[in-house]
């Protein structure tokens, strides 16, 4: 036993995670990291006890992956992309600007524990670089002058950021991954942008569904009212293929709906009403 006294909170998190992930170490560590924003020493020792593994193996795994951290992270995590595409478009200048603004280097946290700065090798959306991600919200085509604004917005609460005022939550143009017909409907605007038009069925109902084309907006309109937590079957209105993929929603586990982005890449969204699971794959 590495740990003699355990806080009940930690124990319940670890127990639930181990049960959920069938004793898979990395998934358990990810759960702890997500909850605390870092891996506390006690948590690693507890996982070692629970999984009956030597501590050095777990410490080795946790130190190997950059996704895990042993130091306490700030409330907001700013990730600046320094991949090849973002690098040539001025990614390092963005990092410098953030460093100057917050007085922290990449990998560090401000003294008031509000911000942590990290760099990423590539976030997979090179077409809209340089990218800065703050608490999961993507800011595209960032210039050094915009850094101050982004940080101020984060301080006031990124959730409250008005999409219409802030143009850098970007609109996407998508098409069917099977027949490549455009799914954009320019006649109906949602969030003041052309919407994405697909057909859906749930239960015995079949009808159209219009989604906001703004990445990060969850506004929808639909022919029939869709009860919460209903998993929809989505179809292309042109070729009538069911839009589904083997990717599972990171939040609820439903099979994600893929849409091709004009200019390359795929955006996946979760077909469950009310679930905010989505991912961008460029």
């Amino acid at each position: 036993m590495y740990l003699s006294e355990v806080s009940t909170e930690l124990e319940s998190i670890v127990d639930a995670s181990i049960k959920k992930h069938n004793k898979f170490l990395i998934a358990v560590l990810q759960d702890i990291q997500r909850h605390y924003n870092y891996l506390p020493e006690d948590a690693i020792k507890l996982v070692a006890d629970k999984l009956e593994m030597p501590l050095r193996d777990i410490y080795g795994v946790a130190s190997f992956y950059k996704a895990f951290s042993f130091n306490k992270k700030g409330k907001h995590i700013i990730t600046a992309c320094l991949g090849t595409a973002c690098h040539v478009r001025g990614g390092p200048k963005i990092v410098d600007a953030i460093t100057k603004e917050l007085n922290i280097k990449p990998g560090e946290t401000t003294k008031d524990m509000q911000f942590s700065l990290e760099t990423a090798a590539c976030l997979g959306c090179c077409a809209i670089g340089p990218i800065v991600v703050v608490d999961g919200v993507y800011f595209s085509n960032v210039k050094p002058t915009m850094v101050k604004k982004i940080i101020e917005q984060t301080k006031s609460g990124i959730e409250k950021t008005d999409i219409e005022k802030y143009k850098h939550i970007f609109p996407v143009k998508v098409s069917c991954p099977r027949c490549n017909h455009s799914l954009m409907n320019t006649e109906h605007l949602i969030d003041n942008y052309p919407c994405i038009h697909i057909t859906v069925s749930f239960g015995r109902k079949h009808g159209w569904l219009r989604l906001s084309s703004l990445y990060g907006s969850y506004s929808i309109e639909s022919e029939h009212e869709i009860p919460m937590d209903t998993e929809l079957n989505c179809f292309c209105p042109h070729c009538h293929t069911e839009l589904t993929s083997s990717f599972e929603c990171p939040i609820c586990g439903a099979n994600m709906v893929p849409l091709m982005i004009r200019g390359g890449g795929t955006v996946h969204f979760c077909p469950r009403r009310g679930c905010k699971g989505h991912m961008l794959d460029v």
């Binding site: 690693i44 030597p54 501590l55 777990i58 410490y59 080795g60 130190s63 190997f64």
Partner: peptide, 17 residues
């Protein structure tokens, strides 16, 4: 199983947890 590899790449080292 007291010592093991920690970190990776050029930061790789052998140490205790």
């Amino acid at each position: 199983k007291a010592i093991g590899f920690v970190n990776r790449g050029n930061k790789l080292e052998i140490t205790t947890p």
